[in-house]
Computed example of a mutant assay.
Amino acid sequence: MSSSDIFQSEVLGTMVLVLLGGGVCAAVNLKRSKAFEAGWVAIAFGWGFAVLTGAYIAQTSGAHLNPAVTLALAIKGDTDWGDVPVYMGSELLGAVIGAVLVWLAYYGQLHATLNEPEMAKQKTSNPGPVHGVFFTSPEIRNPVQNFVTEFIATFVLILAIVTQGLVKDADGTVGLGRMGALITALVVVGIGLSLGGPTGYAINPVRDLGPRIVHALLPLPNKGGSDWGYAWVPIAGPLAGAAAAAGIYNLVWG
């Protein structure tokens, strides 16, 4: 599998993942949306379907869609370390493009929400309904607890991936088979429902970093800051959780 195959597949798959995942957050959180206040269950299932759709689109590259998955598969030995930068760079680019598409799709709702008087009063902070469309933030800001939550949630995700549904094609491509993609999507729903409450469950560094970059650059009124002081948590927590899960897999089943 060539670097261009990886690049194209991961960019498109991650783009759709973030478009649909960020889209459900926008649909639920932004005023003047028909799904306004649909609730956390809608968000959890929306992200699950986003994973499922992105995984099917990115089958050519093994549908990593997530640097935590790429790191775990490299530790497990299923992905060449030389391909890791291509995977991760492609995933980040796809996440950025996906976040831009969310902005375009919900342009009117974003401006309707941000132009309300209460948003102008808190423009130096992070208006919840809008920043939640682009990036995660904790309900209780405790960096140690927040890191541990992301670690645990990603550990569950990666352990589920590396212990089921992984297939190796004739050309050496390693990734989720069709049933594995479905199971993993349901695992993501379960993580959202069970472990998503404290931090919003990034469990994917680029799912958080890419849209955070877009939020920082977009000319949105009263948007507040992009909370860069917290940004390390949804990067470091998932990567550490993925490394631990891959290490456990190698120790127990390797």
Rank of each mutant, 00 (worst) to 15 (best):
Q8I: 14
V11E: 09
T14Y: 00
T14I: 05
M15Q: 11
V16Q: 06
L20T: 10
L20D: 09
G22V: 12
V24C: 06
V24L: 08
C25D: 00
C25I: 03
A26P: 01
A26Q: 08
A26V: 02
A26D: 06
N29E: 03
K31C: 12
K31I: 13
S33M: 10
A35H: 05
G39Y: 01
V41M: 08
V41Y: 03
A44T: 09
F45L: 14
W47N: 05
W47G: 05
F49L: 14
A50H: 05
A55L: 14
Y56W: 13
S61Y: 05
P67W: 06
P67L: 05
A68H: 09
I75L: 06
D80L: 15
D83R: 07
S90Y: 03
S90D: 15
E91I: 10
L93A: 12
L93D: 10
V100G: 08
L101H: 01
Y106F: 13
Y107S: 15
G108M: 09
G108H: 04
Q109A: 00
L114T: 05
N115P: 08
V130A: 15
V130S: 11
G132N: 11
V133N: 01
F134K: 05
P138S: 10
N142C: 09
V144W: 00
N146H: 13
N146G: 13
V148R: 00
T149G: 06
F151W: 00
A153Q: 00
T154Y: 03
V156M: 09
L157Q: 00
I158S: 10
A160M: 11
V162W: 01
T163H: 05
G165Y: 03
L166D: 13
V167E: 15
A170V: 14
D171N: 13
T173W: 15
T173G: 14
G175E: 00
R178M: 15
G180A: 07
G180Y: 04
A181S: 14
L182N: 07
L182V: 15
L182G: 08
G192A: 12
P205T: 01
P205L: 05
V206G: 07
R207G: 11
L209H: 10
A216R: 06
P219E: 02
L220C: 11
P221E: 00
G225L: 07
D227N: 14
Y230F: 04
Y230T: 06
A231M: 02
W232E: 02
V233K: 08
G237T: 10
G237D: 03
P238L: 14
A240M: 00
A242L: 04
A244L: 13
A245F: 13
A246Q: 07
Y249H: 11
L251R: 07
L251D: 12
G254S: 13
